[in-house]
């Protein structure tokens, strides 16, 4: 057993270090603490804690009710999948579902905006022709 003060190798049952006299009891030696888990953080990205993984339920309901798209129903299903996987402790699965829902919502939003623009342009052209 090595002395934590001076590093001298002492007898395993020694109470005091024979070199410096420091206390050698096991109680005096702090057990090595494992380093705290630090997730690898990439620049520009953040790893939210489990409870903060966004499910975008609000946006999914908005997409269903105000975008008039059946795609919104899939979004609600995905948002629910996030909840289910968070409850099951599946961090990676919950993150994947969250990202998938975010992509779906962008697609819904894009279809809504492009569809509106096409309709408006068509309405203006038909008004100009009549």
């Amino acid at each position: 057993m090595y002395c934590i003060q001076c590093g001298t190798n002492n007898h395993d049952q020694a109470v005091h270090c024979m070199q410096c006299g420091a206390f050698m009891s096991q109680q005096g030696i702090a057990p090595p603490t494992p380093p705290p888990y630090i997730p690898q953080i990439q620049p520009g990205y953040m790893q939210p804690p489990m409870a903060q993984i966004p499910n975008y339920m609000v946006q999914s309901v908005l997409a269903t009710l105000f975008c008039c798209l059946p795609l919104g129903i899939v979004s609600i299903f995905k948002a629910n999948e996030v909840n289910r996987k968070v409850a099951a402790g599946d961090y990676a699965g919950a993150m994947a579902a969250s990202k998938a829902n975010k992509t779906l919502l962008w697609v819904s939003f894009g279809i809504g905006v492009v569809g509106t623009l096409i309709y408006v342009v068509a309405a203006i052209i038909s008004a100009a022709n009549s």
Partner: peptide
């Protein structure tokens, strides 16, 4: 519920709005 959720998300983008609702409630709404 949508207006409440949006308000909370705007105040704090990291707030877990409706993310702790049990999955069976979400399925029920679906």
């Amino acid at each position: 519920a949508v207006l409440y959720g949006l308000t909370r998300q705007i105040v704090n983008p990291n707030s877990p709005v409706y993310s702790r609702i049990p999955a069976r409630w979400g399925t029920a709404f679906l």
